[in-house]
């Protein structure tokens, strides 16, 4: 994994598949994201990053809406 490929999730375009590298969120939010299946190492597909509002990703079989704020805190490659 090359370091230069690491970027915030918010910059990923529709339809791309990426791998989570790091989540820089607080303890509580971290545990919630984990329980929903988002933690370093998993592959996610960006479903909807078209509008300026929330952001939709697909992890395994579930679709999850993330606010812009979180999408900036999740680093992917």
């Amino acid at each position: 994994m090359e370091i230069k490929d690491v970027r915030p999730l918010a910059l990923v375009k529709d339809g791309e598949t990426v791998k989570i590298v790091n989540i820089a969120a607080g303890c509580g939010l971290n545990s919630r994201l984990r329980a929903m299946g988002l933690w370093p190492g998993v592959e996610i597909v960006v479903v909807n990053n078209r509008n300026s509002g929330a952001f939709v990703v697909k992890v395994k079989e579930s679709k999850i809406v993330l606010g812009r704020g979180i999408a900036n805190k999740i680093m992917v490659s």
């Binding site: 939010l29 994201l33 929903m36 679709k63 999850i64 809406v65 993330l66 606010g67 704020g69 805190k73």
Partner: peptide
């Protein structure tokens, strides 16, 4: 500040 927004879209 607003808090982070996380929500599942069920099938």
């Amino acid at each position: 500040e607003t808090t982070p927004f996380v929500m599942e879209l069920p099938p």
